[in-house]
């Protein structure tokens, strides 16, 4: 399935946060949104997921307006993983992930729902946590559980808001590998807000650079992650080398 965003604008209150965003996400691709803090990465993700209502512009899914779908049908296509999850009340990991089946079930959970959750936990290597309490786990474990909740929605698109921030390097790689595996095995697409330019470079097919409420540039990592673009968008001098798998490796030097 193909996602296109056409001339989308959004603002909180009377301010303007995003202006005229136009971009496309093809099936089976990983797209990273990068840009400085406050550039509007999270806001764009929430607009795509209908959590926020755009002021102007449209989101299309395979040419059909996403806004016309019922919220239940829409939630079967889009899975959202927030930047951080906080549960006020005690829930077990299994219960938290089971909530992702909400779009598919009525009042009763059937054996299939339980099976899908169990398989997903196993797929992510967190089966042993099933009966643990969510609020007692570490950041990396919580992140995987939030991802599991979005995966059991069985969506066509996975939207992730800074999935690797606050994680140690091992968890960062694990999380990114999960995204990659899902995209490859299930032909879904992922849109991620990314903080870490090197992870974005290594794992994405397309990098979208946001600056001043709009898209500064987008394209494959090699053409987007250049010292010039990084200087313009982040105001940082950097050196870009040829890294792992011929992906650009960015070494920030100093702010200007």
């Amino acid at each position: 399935m193909k996602l296109s965003v056409k001339e989308l604008s959004f603002g909180y209150g009377s301010t303007s946060t995003l202006e005229d965003i136009t971009m496309e996400v093809d099936e089976g691709k990983i797209v990273s949104l990068v840009g400085p803090n406050g550039a509007g990465k999270s806001t764009l993700i929430k607009c795509i997921d209908r959590i926020l209502k755009p002021r102007k512009g449209t989101v299309f899914l395979d040419g059909k307006q996403a806004a016309m779908l019922t919220s239940k049908d829409f939630s079967k296509m889009m899975g959202y993983v927030p930047q951080s999850t906080h549960e006020v009340f005690p829930y077990t990991v299994f219960d938290v992930v089971l909530m992702g089946r909400r779009p598919h079930i009525g009042w009763r959970v059937n054996a299939n729902d339980v099976k899908i959750v169990a398989k997903t936990l196993k797929f992510l290597g967190i089966e042993d946590f099933a009966s643990r309490y969510f609020d007692e786990l570490s950041g990396g474990e919580k992140q995987k559980i939030a991802m599991a909740r979005a995966i059991v929605q069985e969506p066509e698109f996975l939207l992730l808001d800074e999935p690797t921030s606050n994680l140690d390097i091992r968890h960062q790689l694990e999380v990114m590998n999960i995204v990659k595996k899902l995209v490859l095995q299930r032909r879904i697409s992922a849109v991620m807000a990314m903080h870490d330019l090197n992870l974005a470079s290594r794992f994405s097919d397309i990098v979208v650079m946001l600056k001043d409420r709009g898209i500064y540039t987008m394209g494959d990592p090699v053409s987007v992650l250049t010292p010039e673009n990084i200087e313009k968008v982040y105001g940082v001098k950097s050196e870009v080398k040829n890294g792992h798998m011929d992906r650009p490796y960015i070494m920030p030097l100093e702010p200007i």
Binding site: K46, D49, R50, I51, T70, S71, K72, F74, S75, K76, M78, G79, Y80, P82, T85, H86, E87, V88, F89, Y91, D95, V96, M99, G100, R102, P103, I105, W107, R149, Q153
Partner: peptide
């Protein structure tokens, strides 16, 4: 009791609940 599921999802926050299709 018919709203049990929605209440469960809402306890994870409004954004998650809304992305699970809950008004």
């Amino acid at each position: 009791m018919r709203y049990s599921w929605d209440l469960n999802a809402m306890s994870a926050g409004e954004e998650v609940a809304s992305s699970l299709g809950i008004n």
